[in-house]
Nucleic acid binder design. Structure first.
Lengths: 178, 178
DNA sequence: TTATAACATGTCAATATTTACATGTTTGAT
DNA sequence: ATCAAACATGTAAATATTGACATGTTATAA
């Protein structure tokens, strides 16, 4: 499936970028639907170079610090575009540890179950607050439809809707329990 | 983290069950938040027996077909309960291949992007329809709060809310694009 | 000046998951 | 009777992911 391959290819396609900065991207907007550790990214970058999908140029920062700045090749662009146009079946439902725990919660007592949901509610609200804060930075300026910022905006909105819906679910469960 | 361990322990705790039937459970309600292939389940069952968390009894069905019926031990129950009471940080946001593709969609043209969203919309609506059909089997009888069926009901509702919210997101994206 | 956080790139071992291989039984429809 | 689908349990190889190990540089605040 090699999804990480295309996640990286997509980023390198936007702008030449280092492995370190790719890792950072996986902790921003992108983190709302994909992520990877640097220990997975560096080997994948090497692989993509071997496959001729990206190139790199070594840059010296300061006195001696070496950075590798990766650039996409024509072959890489084609490969990315082909992947973007794919029509795939729906992914399996994402795994959810909290739902798994609540699914088996019958062996707990009511108070214990309620505590679990209330804790989850606090954490989800905090996350929603964070996402809303990021969204407010766009304030009145919704990005143009065909632009990299539109991608950021779109998935951020998706993340907010998802959290809201999760919170709605928690509240319904709590109402039933009380 | 061993989440599969607890998913299996939770199922075995409900009722004695075979590996084959555990695999089937992972394709029903449970599939809305956890799943595994039989090639992962059988080795995990062996491990749980080694750890003394479950036992099994060999049953002969028909002439000679051997089934292993697994039962939870006291130690297993304790282990499960401890896990259920855990208060954990939020899981990282689940990965979403479709969102990843749309995030990088700026290199496609508008028509191509719209086609992608429309295809996704059809598939998501189909899935929502399926979930609603399952939900309708409960019709007017919402299960009692502390019962295994309540778990089923709860997570099914969660799955429906999630699909609805995904569809809402797709529609918003399509509105912007058109 | 010096300590610390952030920058920068990698490897290795362990765990988790998927896909393919492998084998045999039982039930139910034609 | 016989065929196919479902029942039933496993292993092995490949891929994906995480967590720990490993090393060195640069910017900045105290």
């Amino acid at each position: 499936m090699r999804t990480l391959k295309y996640a990286i290819l997509g980023l390198v396609n936007r702008n030449p970028i280092t492995g370190y900065d790719i890792t950072k991207e996986f902790n921003k907007e992108l983190a709302n639907f994909w992520y990877a550790k640097h220990s997975q990214i560096y080997p994948e970058l090497k692989k993509l170079v071997d496959e001729g999908l990206i190139n790199f140029e070594v840059i010296i920062a300061g006195e001696s610090l070496e950075k590798k700045l990766y650039t996409i090749t024509e072959k890489g662009k084609e490969s990315l575009k082909k992947w973007l146009l794919q029509v795939e079946d729906l992914d399996p439902t994402p795994k959810d540890k909290f739902k798994l725990r609540m699914y088996f919660s019958e062996i707990l007592n009511k108070e214990e179950i309620i505590l679990q949901f209330e804790d989850q509610l606090i954490k989800r609200n905090k996350k929603l607050q964070f996402l809303n804060d990021v969204m407010n930075e766009y304030d009145r300026t919704i990005p143009d439809v065909i632009s990299p910022e539109f991608g950021d905006y779109m998935v951020l909105e998706g993340a907010i809707l998802r959290e809201q819906s999760y919170i709605e679910w928690i509240n319904r469960c709590l109402n039933r329990l009380k």
